[in-house]
Amino acid sequence: MPELLAPIAGNVWKILIAVGDKVELDDEVIILEALKMETPIYCDDSGTITEIRVKEGDAVNEGDVLAVIG
């Protein structure tokens, strides 16, 4: 199952999706905040969100799994 990884370390600023949502390639799904700058994260695959592993305000490292797309 494809996983959406954090490309950059930072804090989760906004989550724009919920479990069960259908997403397309290149959809903006999560916004991270690093160095006071908002960085949108885009979807790498199309499918349905089966799991979201982070919540708003969480600190993430580069490479952490943000969500799982089924």
């Binding site: 490309p7 950059i8 290149d26 690093a34 160095l35 006071k36 700058m37 960085t39």
Partner: peptide, 23 residues
């Protein structure tokens, strides 16, 4: 610091939005 790094990140992501150059 960190204005220039932010600026690089922005210009990079304009060219390729999967480009995360900040760090």
């Amino acid at each position: 610091v960190p204005m220039a790094a932010r600026c690089v990140h922005k210009v990079g992501s304009e060219a390729n939005r999967r480009n995360y150059l900040l760090m």
